[in-house]
Amino acid sequence: MTRTDNKLSDLQVFLRNFVIELILYGTLVVGYFLVVLRLLNDYLTNLSRTNLTLYAFLALFLIVAQGVLLDGLTSFLLSKVKLDRLKK
């Protein structure tokens, strides 16, 4: 097998695994949109109008927490569908 063939085969595996990853991640994120973000929306809007200082610190906390959480989730999914290891 030539180097180009290997690269093509890797690309096919990558694309297949990418679709699986996208479906899994998409399902989880849509659930997250529906539950967590909808619940938070009204509370955060009210907080931004009544206590801007608390809103600012909470905003920073939420984005950092989500950063750590989603990095863990995507790394987990990538390892499960072997997107980070391209050998069959």
Partner: peptide, 19 residues
């Protein structure tokens, strides 16, 4: 800052960065 907007954007960014 609209943190809701940032949280939604970040859900896509986390996956995009790994890809």
């Amino acid at each position: 800052v609209d943190v809701m907007m940032a949280l939604v954007m970040h859900t896509g960014a986390a996956l995009g960065a790994q890809i």
